[in-house]
């Protein structure tokens, strides 16, 4: 039997939600409760207003001289979706192709890893090389997708080849919704790579990444308009 989330539960988390410190899952629960509870909704609004009111008190600081120009360049080159439906439709074809390629390669590499446990290093190396050759590739990187509180909620793969691609699988996101996916390189550039529609905590996104070098990807971020963020990073250097 599922316990109903009530005022006592909300009271435990209300402060963290008001100050913005709560995890996505906690925030969702409290906001859902507050929708139907005027007492908690009022207290949350009061506390959040005070917390938010503190943010502008921080002294202003001018960023570097070329900041505005750089931001506007990024805005000019960014793909702001006209609508979520249009964006999904536009990206669907290449995404499906890349996803299929990704699944094939990951399956091959997965098979190679299993074989590694029962065979020789030479065999797994040959298998790895074979998979890369079949995919016109040089190397593949893997990493974890983490929620805001550091819990692993999925995996990320980046493949350097022809074409290079990114595969993102989320299995237990704290909140459903449409997440915009942004890729950041070590050199500081940013590229919008699509959207991941999370349903029941899960989504998969496979996209080609154009001329971005897979080894240069620093982090991939998934952002939901309501504030929930997931972060995918690569812990290991590319295996060349």
């Amino acid at each position: 039997m599922v316990e109903r989330f009530g005022c006592d539960d909300a009271a435990d988390l209300l402060l963290d939600v008001a100050t913005g410190a709560a995890t996505g899952a906690d925030r969702d629960q409290v906001l859902q409760h507050a929708d139907s509870c005027v007492i908690c909704r009022t207290e949350l609004a009061d506390l959040a207003a005070v917390a938010d009111g503190l943010l502008p008190l921080v002294p202003h600081r001018e960023p570097p001289a070329d900041f505005t120009e750089y931001v506007l360049d990024r805005i000019a080159s960014s793909e702001r979706p006209m609508s979520l439906v249009d964006e999904r439709r536009r990206r669907r074809a290449p995404r499906v192709l890349a996803y299929a390629a990704a699944l094939l390669l990951v399956a091959a590499l997965g098979g190679g890893l299993v074989w590694w446990r029962t065979g020789t290093d030479r065999s797994v190396a040959a298998d790895y090389r074979g998979a890369l050759t079949a995919g016109n590739g040089k190397y593949i990187r893997a990493g974890q997708v983490l929620s805001e509180d550091g819990v692993q909620v999925g995996r990320v793969f980046a493949y350097q080849g022809d074409p290079s691609w990114l595969l993102l699988t989320v299995t237990s996101a704290p909140r459903d919704g449409t997440y915009s996916v942004h890729m950041y390189t070590k050199a500081g550039s940013q590229k919008d790579v699509g959207q991941c529609v999370v349903v029941d905590g899960a989504c998969t996104l496979g996209v080609t990444i154009g001329d971005v070098n897979a080894g240069e990807i620093r982090v991939v971020r998934l952002e939901c308009p309501v504030g929930t963020r997931l972060t995918a990073s690569f812990a290991e250097p590319p295996a060349r």
């Binding site: 502008p56 202003h60 505005t68 931001v71």
Partner: peptide, 25 residues
């Protein structure tokens, strides 16, 4: 808003390079 955004970011993270990236984002 750039001075407000950058000012808040650097007040929290402390490092100018990270603050600039946060402000851009």
């Amino acid at each position: 808003f750039k001075a407000r955004v950058y000012g808040l970011a650097i007040a929290i993270v402390g490092l100018s390079t990270e603050a600039e990236e946060i402000a851009q984002d």
